[in-house]
Design a protein around this nucleic acid. Structure first.
Length: 395
DNA sequence: TCTGGGGTCCTAGGACCC
DNA sequence: TCTGGGGTCCTAGGACCC
C-alpha cells in the first residue's frame, strides 16, 4: 500500500489555523502555500482543490498562480509543524506494522502482505485506516493498493482526495494504460517530451513499444521504462530507513551577490549549518561540493574529494572558499549551495607529515562545545566574527 | 516581486593503471 | 606498422522525485 497525504502542506496548515481560532478552513477556498516573494522564494508548495481547478500547479511561481487566480489566498509554510504532523502520521501507521518505508515527509509504503492474516481484506483495511487518520489527525489521505510498490504508488494518485484505489496486475491495462505518458512514475518532463516526439503518448503506448526501437533512444533506461509501463516492479518495501548519502543546504539570496566577500559570508553561514547537521548524525564527509546559480538561472558546481573525511567546520569552510575561487566567473550570483557527500561513520584519519594532529583534535573538541552551546541556548549564541553585524564591537 | 530546497540516481568524459 | 582493451576513480551535469 502507498499512503499519501492529500495536499499535505496545505492540509496541515489548515488544521493548525483552525486549532488557533482562524475562522475558516483554507482547504475550502482558493488557497496555496508559498514562500515569501519579496525574498524570491515565491513558488507554490501546495494548493487547495479549488486552486487546482484554476490550473495552478505545484512548483510554479506565485506570480503565475496569481495570474490564473487573482483572488488567491496565500499562506506561509511552517516546516516545524509539517515535521510534527508527519511524525504523528507515521507513528499511527507503526501501530499496525513495522514494515513502513518512508518516501518523503508526507508519503510512505507499507507491506500489507505480512499483516494480511492479522487484519484481513486489504481494501476494507485501507478504508478503515484512512478514516481513522481523518478522525484522529484531522487530514485526509489517499491509499493505493497494488501487487508492487509502483502500482500502489500509481493507484494512490488516481482520484483525490480521501480515496482508496487498487491497481492490481490484472487492472493495469484498464487503469494504467490510458493515462498520459508523463503521469508514469519516473517519467518526467524531459523524457515525456522525447517520448511524445516518438509518438508514444500514453502509458499503454510505452508498454507495447518495441524494445529495440526504444533502446535506440534511451539505451539502458529502455528496459525499465517498458517494465514500469506494464506495472512491473521488483523493488521491496525497505523499512529501516537508510542513512543519508549526503547532506546539502542551499539558499536563494534576497538579491544577487556580486563580490567574493559577500559570497564567502554566505558560504560560511551554510557551512555552519551542514557541518552541525553532519556532526549531529555522527558522520564525516569525503566530498565537498559548492553549487552556484547565476542571474540567468544557470547552475554549475565544483567539487573536491578530500584526503581525509572531515566534520570540522573550518576545514569545510576553507575547502568551499577554495572551490569558489576556482569556479566563480565573477558574475552576479542568485543561489549558493553546499553539499557534503561520500559520508562515512568515522574519519579513519590518515595523518599527513605536515599536519598538526594536536591542533585538529583541539579543533574538534572546540566544535563539540560550540554545538552543545547552540543546542542549549539557540543558534545565535555564538557565531563567527565575520558574520557579526557589529564587527567593531567584538573583542 | 516570475522561477525553493532537499534528496537520489545515472551518464559521459577524462585520468590513470595494467 | 600510428595508436587495444578492460577496469576504476573522479568530476560535472542532468533527470527525476516530493
Amino acid at each position: 500500500m502507498h499512503i499519501d497525504v492529500n495536499s499535505a502542506f496545505l492540509s496541515w496548515t489548515a488544521i493548525d489555523l483552525l486549532n488557533n481560532g482562524f475562522g475558516k478552513d483554507i482547504r475550502e477556498e482558493y488557497a496555496v502555500i508559498s514562500g515569501d516573494e519579496s525574498k524570491r522564494h515565491g513558488i507554490v508548495l501546495a494548493k487547495s482543490d479549488k486552486a487546482k481547478q484554476k490550473g495552478i500547479i505545484t512548483g510554479e511561481s506565485l506570480y503565475n498562480a496569481r495570474r490564473k487566480c487573482p483572488n488567491l489566498n496565500v499562506y506561509a509554510p511552517d516546516y516545524h509543524l509539517y515535521e510534527e504532523m508527519s511524525d504523528c502520521l507515521f507513528k499511527l501507521l507503526s501501530t499496525y506494522t513495522p514494515d513502513i518505508e518512508i518516501l518523503s515527509i508526507d508519503e510512505c509504503f507499507i507491506d500489507y502482505t505480512k499483516i494480511k492474516k492479522l487484519y484481513g481484506d486489504e481494501i476494507a483495511f485501507a478504508h478503515k485506516l484512512k478514516d481513522k487518520i481523518k478522525q484522529e489527525l484531522g487530514f485526509t489521505v489517499n491509499i493505493g493498493i497494488g501487487n508492487n510498490k509502483l502500482c500502489a504508488k500509481m493507484a494512490s494518485d488516481f482520484q483525490k482526495p480521501d480515496k482508496v484505489h487498487t491497481l492490481y496486475q490484472h487492472e493495469v491495462k484498464a487503469k494504467l494504460w490510458p493515462l498520459p505518458i508523463n503521469e508514469l512514475y519516473g517519467i518526467g518532463k524531459k523524457t515525456s517530451e522525447k517520448l511524445i516526439t516518438l509518438n508514444i503518448k500514453t502509458i499503454g503506448d510505452l508498454a507495447n513499444i518495441d524494445y529495440n526501437f526504444l533502446y535506440k533512444y534511451f539505451k539502458n533506461q529502455a528496459a525499465s521504462m517498458i517494465e514500469s509501463a506494464n506495472g512491473i516492479d521488483h523493488s521491496l518495501v525497505i523499512s529501516n530507513s537508510l542513512p543519508p548519502k549526503g547532506i546539502s543546504h542551499s539558499i536563494t539570496l534576497e538579491r544577487d551577490l556580486t563580490t567574493k566577500e559577500e559570497i564567502y559570508e554566505v558560504l560560511q553561514m551554510i557551512v555552519e549549518r551542514v557541518a552541525i547537521s553532519l556532526r549531529k548524525q555522527h558522520k564525516y564527509a569525503y566530498v565537498v561540493v559548492v553549487n552556484l546559480k547565476n542571474q540567468f538561472f544557470k547552475s554549475y558546481s565544483h567539487q573536491v574529494k578530500l584526503k581525509n573525511a572531515t566534520n570540522i567546520t573550518n576545514e569545510i569552510f576553507e575547502t568551499t572558499k577554495r572551490l569558489l575561487d576556482e569556479m566563480w566567473k565573477n558574475e552576479p550570483i542568485r543561489l549558493v549551495g553546499i553539499r557534503l557527500d561520500s559520508l562515512v561513520d568515522s574519519d579513519h584519519y590518515q595523518q599527513s607529515l605536515f599536519e598538526d594532529v594536536v591542533d585538529r583534535e583541539k579543533q574538534k573538541k572546540l566544535e563539540e562545545v560550540i554545538d552543545n552551546l547552540k543546542s542549549k541556548y539557540g543558534h545565535h549564541i555564538i557565531k563567527p566574527a565575520a558574520l557579526s553585524k557589529n564587527k567593531k564591537k567584538m573583542n
